[in-house]
Design a protein around this nucleic acid. Sequence first.
DNA 1: GTCTATAAGATGATAGAC
DNA 2: GTCTATCATCTTATAGAC
Lengths: 225, 225
Amino acid sequence: MDISSVSDPAARLVRMPAQERRELILEAATAVFAERGYAGTTTAQVAQAAGISQPYVVRMFGTKEKLFLEALDRSLGKLMDSFRSVVADYDGGRLAEKVAALGPERGTGRQAHLKALLSFAYADLIQDRGILLMLMQSFISGHEPVIGARAREGFVGIYRLLRDEAGMGEEVTRDFLAHGMLMNTLISLRLTDLYGQDAGADELLKCTMGAKLPLLLAHETPRAN
Amino acid sequence: MDISSVSDPAARLVRMPAQERRELILEAATAVFAERGYAGTTTAQVAQAAGISQPYVVRMFGTKEKLFLEALDRSLGKLMDSFRSVVADYDGGRLAEKVAALGPERGTGRQAHLKALLSFAYADLIQDRGILLMLMQSFISGHEPVIGARAREGFVGIYRLLRDEAGMGEEVTRDFLAHGMLMNTLISLRLTDLYGQDAGADELLKCTMGAKLPLLLAHETPRAN
DNA sequence: GTCTATAAGATGATAGAC
DNA sequence: GTCTATCATCTTATAGAC
């Protein structure tokens, strides 16, 4: 995703409904905050990515912090929506084929099935680096009074969704989260950049991502700078 | 760890050997970079934490980036030293008592034993938030040309150490790393701040940290700001 | 080895025009 | 709804004294 072209830079001064512009800015902000972090991102970078002026970004969201919070909420929302729809589809019997394709080595029973299905859904979702990295950025914001609090709420919310709403139980949820965190780290680190060049990186990626690796490598991941 | 008192602020203008001052600055830099990240940290904050002037920090390390790299290397070094010494002690039979105390539910055999022992060593090491958070900061620096490259090298180095040098094998190493990443996330997020106040947070912490939880809660974790 | 002074360049946010 | 101009602040790094 090329940050500088989230929207057409030539198309300035185009009036548009506030809600539409809002979403456009949030998408741009997600991409920039994701790579550069809260402190490392300037409102001018977000503005450029969204194709509008810097003061307008501030005008629309009040402060940089509020903009970050909205972008984080948006990512968390997409994640929870994705998980909820998998659970609903599984319970509605609409994933019977996918379940059959999983094979027995991933375990049997509802919890094991959900774990595998949700893991695929997650790998799918985080093909959008923006979403994944917004989460990662939130994880390291524990010390920030406002953002940190929201980050904790978000994480606990996902844990509850998985353990209680989806009914995966304590241990399965923990293992699911643990492997998710490892996937996060490998992607965030851009370990895929070393794929084919470093035997250790290759094996770690294969072993961690399994059948989901091709999805990752398909990424165009231009080193933003 | 109170950032503002890593060294005595009153003790200015005390001459000391360059190497000693270097280590002092690196320790201060680790604490500050850890909480606020690379972009969010100013050289003035590091200077204050180290009890010296801002220009002297720059003078000694050249640039903020070089300072960060040295602090990261220092943390990575401590981590690898810790892991290597566990492996050496295990193979030297010097951990027989600890192994016996593990109980059978953690598995038997060299790999399972090492996994459990290393996991305790890790929990011990990251009682120093600085080390853990420096690693986390490096994980999200994938897009930075210099820091990102070092971060990838460091991660692959640890993977190799565990898999090959320690002989834990692919799957066990992956699971070890995965659960380590989850621990990292919970600590970095300061989820312990919610302990006793949020049932979800409590159960996630207990389930993830197991016997290592008391270690975590013992922390004085003043919300730096 | 360590400091003070300061240059040179961002950056978040506000004011006010169109 | 959107922009231009601009302020006040902060930040890295350099120069040079002690």
